[in-house]
Amino acid sequence: MTFNPLEQRGIPLDRQVRNWRELNVTPIDPDRADPYTRCRIITMNGIEVEASLFSHQFARHCPDAEVRRQLAQTRYIEQQQQKAVNWLLPGLASVLETTIAYEQVAVDLTAWVARMEPDPYLKQAYQFGVLEDFDHLYRYANLYEMIEHRKAEVVVDGLTEVMPGRPTKFHHRDPVDNVRDPYDRTTANPLSKLHALTIMSAEQQTMNFYMNVGPEYMEPIARQLYQEIGLVEEEHVTHYESLVDPGETWWEQLVNHEYNECYLYYSFMEQESDPRVKAIWELHLNMELEHLRIACDLMRRHDGREPEQVVAPELPNVLTFEPNKAYVRELLDTQIDLTTLGAGYVREAHERFERMQEAINGGEQPPSERIIDEHRAMYQGGEYRAQTEGEHPVPALRG
């Protein structure tokens, strides 16, 4: 069954404000909830945060007071949505447990997008990034066992493997080599636009999460690991945001944001296993349909274009959280030793890469390596992994 959000009517904006009782959602049970329910929550939190940040930036660059008032009205509802979504996360879960879930989102969301992306250049960008998030999951899993004496398996529940990816120490690149070539807004597949906006938003939320929670730890190695991976997330946001065509007008971007929210809420409503959470996805979808209608009207009035010129006439197949073990293992076998050079990818440790490695590591082991050494010392020579079968070598970049 096709679903065209451009033809649907949602809840009128003046009926969307919720009171405190309605916003006081009951969080999921961290020990009994479907891990992918938590992944969907984390994803939609990132999407709503991006919606709010984009709206604020739009307002700061818009001279039309009436448009700014319209953005403020919609943005308030987006902020209520963000509070309802993010407050579904359980207070019982530790920061590290939530971190493990963030990295599970990064692995399985990015891997699914890479599998479905129709543009080969954009596909490569997602394939490259997922191997780095995969390694972050492994590093945090070892920290989790050291500090909380629990295994990441209780969080990912066998849906996502925990083992080394492209080593985090190789993620530190010259910033100019994190900037990719953008898609062409006039010819890009509408699905490619949704993918880029989704992954950019998810990585941005991860970056913000780590920069805020990292200093809350007392253990020096924990503080240092969050600092290191937080800087890599800055690289990832640069990597993904540069895929978006900077020639898109503010009105076009607004429509893309609202359409993407409809796409994701619809996708997650279709697959959600928790009836209570599913009801929230459905409610928010009906709110977003009205936000999309408003954005489309603004684009018609101020950009002189119809939304059909920008977005697909119907939603694509639903975005799905599902295991991607075989796909990630294939990438481990074929792409683990890649790095970036300009807007492309190479297997050689080129001069700019080596210069950055020396500048940030200074000849010392970074926290991401020391966490494994400390785990081995604590657990008599072993490190934490949770995988289905077999081992994978971890090659270095060729010099």
Rank of each mutant, 00 (worst) to 15 (best):
V156T: 14
A202L: 06
E148W: 06
A125G: 07
R115G: 08
A152V: 04
P118F: 06
V156P: 11
Q104S: 10
G129C: 05
Y183D: 11
D108N: 15
M116I: 03
Y126H: 07
A202G: 00
L197K: 03
Y210P: 06
V107G: 02
I147E: 11
L197E: 08
T186L: 13
S192T: 10
D177C: 04
L131Y: 11
L197S: 02
G158Q: 09
D177T: 02
L159V: 03
Y183F: 14
E132C: 06
R166I: 03
Y210R: 09
K123D: 08
A141E: 02
E148C: 04
P182W: 09
T186C: 12
Q124N: 11
R185M: 13
P167M: 09
A188P: 01
M200S: 14
H172E: 05
E148G: 04
R115N: 00
V113S: 01
P190G: 13
R139S: 05
E145W: 07
D133P: 04
P167K: 00
P164L: 09
V156C: 13
F209V: 01
M163A: 05
H136A: 00
R180V: 04
L143I: 03
M163P: 00
P175V: 10
D157Q: 15
D135E: 13
V130D: 03
R166E: 11
Q104H: 13
P120E: 05
L109A: 05
V113K: 00
F170N: 03
V179A: 13
N178L: 12
L109W: 06
N142E: 13
R139T: 08
Y102D: 07
D157W: 11
M163N: 10
R185A: 15
I199Y: 01
M207T: 09
R173K: 10
T206N: 13
P190K: 15
Q204R: 15
L194V: 14
Q205Y: 12
T187W: 12
T110V: 07
A196H: 11
V162W: 13
